[in-house]
Simulated scan of single mutants.
Amino acid sequence: MVETMEWQQADKTLLLLDQTKLPQVCEFIPCKDYLRVKVAIQRLEVRGAPAIGAAAAFAMVLGAREVADAPDFLGALDKIRADLITARPTAVNLAWAANKLYALAVELNKQDNAPYKIIKELEKTAIKIYDEDIARNKKMGEYGAAVLPENAVVLTHCNAGALATCGWGTALGVLRSAHAQGKLKMVYADETRPLLQGARLTAYELYEDGLPVTLITDNMAAWTMRTKGINAVVVGADRIAANGDTANKIGTYGVALAAKAHGIPFYIAAPVSTFDFSIASGAEIPIEERAADEVKCFRSEQTAPAGVATFNPAFDVTPAELIAGIITEYGVITAPYIENIKRLQEQSKEDF
């Protein structure tokens, strides 16, 4: 598996795989300040909720180093935190990681620790977030593989694999675990317009890792369900509300509706850090809208009239009633979601 990022402790540099250039070019971006990480998140050079969270944690370390000598160290770090979380409003892992590291800095400051000692502890925490993400993904993979049938034929949307995390993946981690157990017959990957994360990233990493994968365009999903024996859908998530409503890459809602119509179980795979326990439903999830040229152009070639109006939400929200189960590192949650997500929140308090 290609690594999404690497923290170089010796020179305090975060290397981020530039996912906008895959699959043609495998190139890493050296980030030596927090703003370069923010730009990488905005440009989708790093993407996927867990990967964004880990990148944000390292960005906080870089930012803390930049303001270490500021008269008001905590105030300067708080401005960095606030700026960083504006990079992408929908993916909750971004704010979760930035807020977590800032809260740690505040607590350590109360103990009269000098800024450079605080920065050292922030670095340890960022590394821990990175390492734990991989371990959590592998746990999730085992729980998810258990709910898939033998000879699983699975459809997935966007990219929720190793490239969207620190390694192994969420939705694709489930498929990797199923493949290791001999349960996976085929994966159908939606191309995921307009930025082709399914074609460029999911098809790329599954093909490179030797998993059976067939690429389809987004508008083939329903017909593929009807004609190709699909018996499960597994996708990732960018934010999950307290009632189970789930935001994921645009097009996911349509896939869920098609799965419901065909009697196919639709699963979300996401770590607890992707849950936003503070919001009651998906109606409260902010939906990022992106540039019109992403719709009017295919890669760099214009394919629509220059002046035509566009609507380009990056995400949609799938209602909880369409979801058969949410696969987490603590197990698989099923309805009733409000009660069971409250239990998950209590169960995970010590870790988060």
Rank of each mutant, 00 (worst) to 15 (best):
A162Y: 06
V332M: 05
G325D: 05
A314M: 10
A57E: 04
R176C: 11
Q181L: 07
K249M: 08
D69C: 03
M60N: 06
D245I: 11
V39T: 15
Q8R: 15
E150R: 02
C31N: 02
I41A: 13
R43S: 15
G263S: 12
A189E: 05
N137M: 00
Y253M: 07
Y337L: 09
R43H: 14
A232E: 12
P23E: 08
L148H: 02
L84P: 13
T334S: 06
L101C: 09
A68H: 06
A76F: 11
V332W: 02
V46P: 04
M1I: 03
I118Q: 01
A189Y: 03
E294D: 11
I52W: 01
D131H: 14
P71A: 11
C166L: 07
A241L: 07
A261C: 02
V61F: 06
E350S: 13
F311T: 13
G63M: 03
N93A: 12
A180I: 09
Q8P: 01
I338K: 15
I323H: 11
A292V: 05
F311Q: 06
I80G: 00
T252A: 11
G229T: 00
K124Q: 10
F266K: 04
T13M: 02
M1F: 02
T202F: 08
L15M: 15
I41S: 01
H179G: 12
I119D: 07
I264M: 09
I268Q: 01
L62S: 00
F315N: 04
A68I: 07
D83Q: 13
N243G: 08
